[in-house]
């Protein structure tokens, strides 16, 4: 109901973004629930920050119990 209300409410670029976003989101959820898609933002950030994270992590571990 909320979806129909929003589709009717928005115009032009906003409507295109809304419908596109919902369709992409629905595909993402379906693939995620069926474990067919490996789109992991956390892993992505971990890979990008790896060169900085590794030295910091090994330094932090020295102070842990």
């Amino acid at each position: 109901m909320l979806f129909v209300y929003d589709v009717k409410r928005y115009r032009g670029q906003e409507r295109k973004f809304f419908i596109g976003g919902v369709i992409l989101g629905a595909i993402y959820v379906t693939l995620a629930l069926n474990e067919e898609l490996d789109l992991n933002f956390v892993d992505l950030i971990q890979q990008v920050l790896k060169p900085i994270v590794d030295p910091l992590e090994s330094w932090l571990i020295k102070y842990q119990l």
Partner: peptide, 11 residues
């Protein structure tokens, strides 16, 4: 709001 919530759920 709606597209973002759907994405957030899947993530």
């Amino acid at each position: 709001t709606i597209p973002l919530t759907i994405f957030a759920f899947a993530s």
